[in-house]
Write a protein that binds this DNA or RNA. Structure first.
Lengths: 193, 193
DNA sequence: GAAAGTTTGGACCAATTGGTCCAAACAGTG
DNA sequence: CACTGTTTGGACCAATTGGTCCAAACTTTC
């Protein structure tokens, strides 16, 4: 009786995510979305609840496929210092390898919070707190292993590392080039020496 | 023969600047602007060239009154290490004292670059480079005075400090609170120790 | 192949977008 | 006090905004 959709919901969200990622929420119109996905309005509103819904799904997908994926991969590493170092080089690499220089959707959104609801605000805040916890955990492990001086304060240092990551993602959108981003990543790691 | 405007152009740009600062370019409409300034469309388009023009003026004004003002003030300080320290505490203070948590217009704009022209891009990039130069100059002076270890690399470290500042401004928009921002500012200064 | 029920295309909607236009109001000059 | 030239209010514009609606197309089940 039913009739299967001719498109894959996840594919659509993927495309939409890239739009929000690049141009932001307000500058992305429904016409942009139908154009980029090939879906007509009817199909779009039949499958999703509207622009807000599409944005939430995009943010969710980004968080899962980028932040979560990266973190769980790095948490599997044996050496915590190297995990932090890898994190930074991945950030720089993914920032530069994107020809559109979209940066990080979570960072971009945290500057756009004025146009979003409370749920989005909490979602973004939680994402950053998780990254801070990751850094903190790495620092503590590094201290136990004697790789990181015990004089380092795990929690404040972790937050400073998050701040550097955010800075890289913002400045990587067009202000700084590869050399500068590499330098920032290098210097940031002096915080755990 | 002429007739003086009943409003002060600079006052209008000031109000408009706050709108762009809080909501971003795309989410700010002309109606928002006429409402916030009290000007009717006719007067607005008689005095300015449109939304783009108003944005450029806002950015210019922000840059002059905030970035330039802060930098020239700090450049007058005798102790370069204290100049850097003061810079960070001012950033944190101004981030937290704003009830709207607008952050920094230059940072916000650098994430919005996709919707702006090349001129704006260069303007923003230049602003950040100037801040980096300020930090670099402080570090060199500090090294001459023996306050900063000569092992520190002035230029890369300066860029890392800029990255921390940017991070504070982004995370200060709603993700982190006072305690966290203070900690980041403290830790950032370990980069010059 | 008919019935069932979802998906699809695209016409359509009111509201809003950035921007234009112009008659009326106005202050200064002669 | 009339003339001059700018400023002002607000009606107006086409285009776009996010969103709705529904007949036609379609696959599956019976």
């Amino acid at each position: 009786m039913p009739w299967e959709k001719s498109f894959d919901e996840s594919d659509v969200v993927e495309r939409v995510m890239h739009l929000f990622w690049q141009k932001g929420y307000s500058a992305t119109s429904i016409s942009d979305i139908t154009e980029a996905t090939g879906l007509k309005r009817g199909s779009l509103y039949n499958a999703f609840d509207g622009k807000d819904d599409l944005f939430h799904r995009s943010l969710q997908k980004y968080d899962t496929e980028h932040r979560c994926a990266t973190l769980t991969q790095l948490e599997g590493m044996a050496d915590p210092v190297q995990a932090i170092s890898t994190f930074f080089s991945q950030i720089v690499k993914s920032t530069l390898s994107d020809p559109d220089r979209k940066g990080c959707l979570l960072v971009n959104t945290s500057i756009d919070l004025a146009v979003h609801d409370e749920h989005t605000k909490k979602f973004v805040a939680n994402a950053f707190k998780t990254i801070a916890q990751f850094f903190e955990s790495c620092i503590r492990k590094g201290q136990e292993l004697g790789e990181i001086p015990s004089s380092i304060q795990p929690r404040p240092t972790a937050k400073a590392l998050v701040s550097c990551v955010v800075g890289i993602r913002v400045l990587g959108r067009g202000v700084f080039g590869k050399a500068a981003l590499d330098q920032i990543a290098d210097q940031a790691q002096r915080l755990i020496q």
